[in-house]
């Protein structure tokens, strides 16, 4: 959470200045990576800058939730949410799914097809 300490939480500017210009995360966070908050802690939330607090609280409220949905729901740029959540995960506040599930697994695709057929 190193970047959190050095930032003025009241300052809103270009999105990437909020995360110190970083766009990379230690491991890839995909749009379907599930975000889970095992133990919501209000005292942790209180220490976070607004955007991180928003992500943390919304993730807790609908846990587990995909990274895509969470960032869209919070209207926080996907790339920014990714960096913030990566930091929250490193600090142990959120759990990130492995994202290892293959989106083109034949069983998954077959189930998606079955589901779509009900809508057609």
């Amino acid at each position: 959470m190193t970047w959190l300490a050095g930032l003025d939480p009241t300052r809103w500017g270009r999105p990437y200045t909020r995360v110190g210009g970083r766009i990379r995360t230690p491991r890839p966070l995909l749009v379907h990576t599930l975000v889970h908050v095992p133990h919501y802690d209000a005292s942790v939330a209180a220490t976070l800058p607004p955007w991180a607090r928003t992500l943390y609280q919304r993730a807790a409220a609908s846990s587990p939730v995909s990274l895509a949905e969470l960032s869209a729901d919070c209207a926080i740029a996907l790339g920014v949410a990714r960096v913030v959540l990566s930091d929250l995960s490193a600090a142990g506040h959120v759990h990130l799914g492995s994202g290892a599930q293959d989106p083109r697994d034949t069983v998954v695709l077959g189930r998606v097809l079955d589901g779509l057929r009900k809508l057609a």
Partner: peptide
Amino acid sequence: TTTVAMDFGRITLESDLVLY
């Protein structure tokens, strides 16, 4: 910053299966 409008939708196909 490049700004792009992007549509995001969701379909719940089964209780454990969501298509984005």
